[in-house]
């Protein structure tokens, strides 16, 4: 039997990107869809992981918040590569014994650590920024150059290369960034966000601020889905590309639409709050008493924190 399906339907679907001159360009609609989808998927992943059973998941959010804040400060105070390495070892060991998906956790920590720690700091290993013993020579000029004065001076030595002192600085900074990220993600992977926000109460953060943070997070999640839907609706109606100026106008119009939508939602929420008897006073209650396990974990974290501080 003859195939009656029109040929254009038999063709594979078009790529979500447009071809530029020799390179692939991702349209702003695709970027928007990806960004919005990432916010929603990150929130789902966080909820999923935080609800698993594991060593840290069983501990009260307030204790974990204390652990996070004290250890982040300890990480920022350490000045030696050895101490930072030991701290990193301790954090990753904790992550391994807690039931977090270790590969996903490491990928996230090292990706951001590499980006914000190593890559950003790498040029500082050059002798132009950190003078010292050159271990990898890169360039040699006929003579040295000097410009500017005081703290805004530029000195270009005759030979440019990576110094030993510079590499030590890059390593220290990278370890510090990696350790801080490892701590943040460890607590995030083992604690539902509303619990983390409620836990801020132990830091004497005003209740009204905590409620606002919780509400904003819920709004963000809700409206991130709206943004994704808006972008997808636009994408599905685009036969070709969207010109720069009309694209900018469209984005501005959608931002304004979001503003109106958030305002309307705000009114609805306020009416609902009044309907439930809200009397202009925000009070967070319902914290359970810390169990002996929480106290033991808190004590263990305190001892470990003091140990690493003195290391």
């Amino acid at each position: 039997m003859e195939n009656r399906i029109p040929p254009f339907l038999l063709r594979p679907p078009a790529e979500p990107t447009e071809q530029g001159r020799g390179k692939v360009r991702v349209s702003f609609v695709d970027r928007g869809v990806r960004h919005a989808a990432k916010v929603v998927s990150d929130a789902y992943v966080q909820w999923e992981l935080a609800s698993r059973e594991g060593l840290l998941q069983k501990i009260d959010a307030r204790v974990k918040l204390f652990f996070l804040l004290s250890f982040v400060v300890v990480v920022s105070l350490k000045r030696e590569i050895g101490a930072e390495t030991a701290l990193g070892g301790f954090i990753f060991l904790l992550a391994a014994v807690t039931r977090v998906p270790f590969a996903v956790y490491c990928r996230r920590v090292f990706f951001f650590g590499f980006l914000f720690g190593f890559l950003v700091a790498l040029p500082s290993s050059l002798n132009v920024i950190t003078p010292g013993r050159i271990i990898i020579p890169l360039l040699t000029f006929p003579e040295a150059y000097e410009a500017g004065g005081y703290h805004l001076s530029w000195h270009l030595p005759r030979q440019i290369g990576i110094t030993e002192e510079g590499m030590r600085g890059v390593l220290l900074l990278t370890l510090r960034v990696v350790n801080s990220l490892a701590l943040s993600f460890l607590v995030l992977f083992t604690t539902p966000l509303p619990e983390i926000i409620r836990g801020l109460k132990v830091l004497k953060v005003p209740d009204v601020f905590i409620v606002m943070l919780t509400l904003s997070y819920k709004y963000i999640f809700l409206f991130a889905q709206t943004v994704e839907e808006v972008y997808r609706a636009k994408k599905s109606r685009l036969a070709g590309g969207l010109k720069g100026s009309s694209g900018r106008e469209w984005v501005a119009g959608r931002m304004a639409f979001l503003f109106r939508k958030t305002q309307m939602r705000c009114e609805d929420v306020y009416k609902a709050m009044l309907g439930r008897g809200f009397s202009d006073e925000v009070r967070i209650s319902g914290f359970r008493k810390l169990s002996s396990r929480d106290w033991m974990a808190g004590a263990a974290f305190a001892v470990a924190g003091i140990f690493f501080l003195l290391l």
Partner: peptide, 10 residues
């Protein structure tokens, strides 16, 4: 409270 949360979301 809802107003500031809305502004943050925006």
């Amino acid at each position: 409270t809802p107003y500031l949360a809305m502004a943050a979301a925006f």
